[in-house]
């Protein structure tokens, strides 16, 4: 018997197509206009790279971009380290004192309004009398993004077949060795994905960085944000396109890396 429920109806297809168009068109338009020769943002003046040249001559913007890249790389690495350790504790630690508090602390920042996270971290840095700049932003980003890493790695760990670890231990490995030899290679794709997620989240953040940075060390999003508040500027289209390209390259690289390292062909994109 032919069931209509198994067919993809025209309505389903339309919804899907419109949905994807809605998600992608604005970005495509942004990218196209970054190559616009005209100074007027919405008048097409032919293809040109002048806004990219403008960006590479804009010292303040370049400094901000460099600051952002450094913050993102350092905080993503720290976050991946801490987040993976946290995930191991939660997924393999069974019951321990303060476990509920621990997982609460790790899950709440995922949905916590950024203004609150930013404000509270700034108050801490002021209380500690820390000089605000690169390290305060990096610590703030690490705190936020390690929670995302934890979720990604933990869900991979809980879905793993534990009999592999147990077999390794039955064969004489100690737990640490069993973890390094058996578990770690299996969760590498999730760890790579976690790093990527942390990197892009850090590269994207305006609010927390605004609270925790000091004078003279603006990140790229802070600079973009202050420019955008004043209106559309073609140079921002060019910068945005470069950021999108960077992230695209990273995603492709990460998914290749995880395909190579994992026989199951696990994608680097989580969720």
């Amino acid at each position: 018997m032919a069931h209509t429920v198994n067919r993809l109806s025209r309505f389903n297809m339309t919804a899907l197509a419109l949905g994807l168009a809605f998600l992608y068109l604005p970005i495509v338009i942004l990218v196209i206009y970054s190559f616009n020769a005209s100074r007027l943002v919405n008048v097409w003046g032919g293809w040109s790279l002048r806004w990219y040249v403008e960006f590479f001559n804009d010292r303040a913007m370049l400094e901000a971009a460099w600051m952002s890249l450094r913050v993102a790389a350092v905080s993503a690495t720290l976050a991946t380290l801490l987040g993976t350790l946290a995930a191991i504790g939660l997924a393999r630690g069974e019951r321990f004192a303060g476990r509920a508090l621990f997982s609460g602390m790790l899950y709440s920042p995922l949905v916590m309004p950024e203004v609150i996270s930013g404000l509270s971290l700034l108050l801490l840095f002021v209380a500690l009398n820390a000089e605000r700049g690169f390290w305060t932003v990096t610590i703030a980003h690490t705190t936020l993004t390690m929670c995302f890493v934890t979720v990604v790695v933990q869900s991979r760990l809980t879905s793993l077949d534990r009999s592999l670890e147990e077999a390794a231990m039955d064969l004489g490995c100690n737990p640490v060795k069993a973890f390094l030899m058996v578990t770690l290679p299996l969760i590498i794709p999730a760890i790579v994905a976690g790093w990527m997620l942390a990197f892009t989240l850090s590269l994207d953040d305006v609010v927390i960085a605004s609270f925790t940075t000091g004078p003279g060390s603006a990140t790229l999003p802070i600079r973009i944000y202050s420019e955008v508040r004043l209106g559309v500027k073609p140079e921002i289209n060019a910068i945005s396109t470069l950021v999108i390209a960077l992230i695209a390259v990273l995603i492709v690289a990460a998914s290749f890396a995880s395909k190579l390292s994992s026989s199951q062909g696990e994608s680097a994109v989580p969720l």
Binding site: G83, G89, A140, T143, P175, F179
Partner: peptide, 26 residues
């Protein structure tokens, strides 16, 4: 075997625990 595994896993949680206590709870 699971119980043997649990102890080092809990040690792994110490660093992130302290980090979150200092930069989230405080």
């Amino acid at each position: 075997t699971r119980r043997i595994f649990a102890r080092p896993a809990r040690y792994a949680a110490i660093a992130p625990y302290l980090w979150m206590a200092l930069f989230f709870l405080v």
